[in-house]
Structure formats: structure tokens, C-alpha cells
Design a binder for these strands. Structure first.
Lengths: 94, 94
DNA sequence: CCGATATATTACTATATATTAATATATCAA
DNA sequence: TTGATATATTAATATATAGTAATATATCGG
């Protein structure tokens, strides 16, 4: 892996290496959800969740579409789900 | 995933979410290596590499053994390799 | 346009992580 | 014990990330 690739990969990993962001991803695993639902699902403040969502969108982990007043987020990079399972199965027995 | 698990997973991810640390892991993919070799392999200063190695050891990603004057590091958590491949295959085509 | 609901942005402070240079410790052979 | 090689630690600063509160913008029905 060359340095540039390493930086890209590190960037993607950093994008999800956060407890709340992991939970957001998990919550979006099966289907898209609007911000409202995501906030409920992970249980924080709206503005914080919005920041996290935006950050992950910037890094290409999530994508979104607006439908009227609501904005629906979904997982743009399916590998993060695999990744989540991968690392999850390791951490369980710790 | 509950909050505690999310924190553990985030911790492991943070441990590898760094360009140099990713390259270290890659360099240890097939066999253990002494610090010297690792420094050569990733091309930084010895003390920095040592810090990274220690950090990853602390977080359970790596393990090491001393043999005389040399210290050999190896991957302690095989899932990080899978993880690397997972995310690597995504980032390639970007 | 106005009010209501949904989402995003800003500005600020706190905390964590990275970087760098210098120095310390460990092991062994002579 | 001394010198040489290998590795680890410390201390200081820079930079990035997180957390918080307040406010702004967007969409739409009426």
C-alpha cells in the first residue's frame, strides 16, 4: 500500500472510528432513515448527530437525499458494514 | 451494539486509523518482524515507529516478543487484516 | 408571507492525537 | 565494565477532533 492509499484508508477508518458514528452506521444498516429517526436511534442531540452525519457524508461513508422537509441518509460505502461485522466479532469476546 | 461495545470497536478502529500504522500492519501481515525491519519497511524515524508499535500493542492490535537484543512484533488481532482488505478494496477505486 | 417542523451551521472551549527532538534503557559481546 | 546496537521513553509543541450551546436555514401547509 503506497502512502496516498494509506492516507485514504486511514481517512475512511477515522470517519467511522467513533462510538456514535458506529451506532449511526449500524442504525442505517438495513435501510435509509431520516435525521429525526437517527437521532432517536442513537440518542443524542440533533445538532451533534447532524454534524456526525455531515462528516461521514463528506468522507463518502454516507449519502443522503432530501424528500420534502426530511433528509434521508443511507450507507454509501457497503464495505463499512462488512468492516463493522469484522471488527465487531473480534471485540465481542474482550 | 450497545454503547460500551461501540466504544471498544471505535478504540480498535482508532488504533489502526493512521497511515503509518496501516503500513506497519500491512508490513506484518505475513510474519513477525523486528523493529529495525519495520522502520525500514515504513520509512520513518525509529522513535516514531516505536511509539506507534507501542500504541498498537496497548490496544491489542499487536503483540511482541523479545529475542536477545531484538523485539519482534506480530499481529495479535487477525481481524485487522481482514479489515484492511475490506476497506482497501473500497478505497482502491477512488 | 407566517408558523411549524426538520435539518444544518457557527463559534467557542476542551480534550485527544500527532510530531519532533532529545535522551534513556536493554542486551550482549569483548 | 565498556562499547555497540536495538529499542523505548520523555517532554514540549502543534494540530485535529469532540462537545456544547446557540442560532440559522429549508420546506411546506395554510
Amino acid at each position: 500500500m503506497n502512502k496516498k492509499t494509506a492516507e485514504k484508508v486511514a481517512n475512511t477508518l477515522k470517519a467511522i472510528a467513533h462510538p456514535v458514528r458506529l451506532r449511526i452506521i449500524e442504525c442505517l444498516e438495513n435501510d435509509e432513515k431520516c435525521v429525526n429517526k437517527i437521532v432517536e436511534c442513537v440518542g443524542g442531540k440533533q445538532s451533534i448527530t447532524s454534524q456526525q452525519l455531515n462528516m461521514m457524508k463528506d468522507k463518502g461513508v454516507l449519502a443522503c437525499r432530501r424528500d420534502g422537509v426530511k433528509v434521508y441518509y443511507r450507507i454509501a460505502n457497503p464495505n463499512v458494514i462488512k468492516l463493522l461485522h469484522c471488527i465487531g466479532s473480534h471485540c465481542k469476546n474482550k
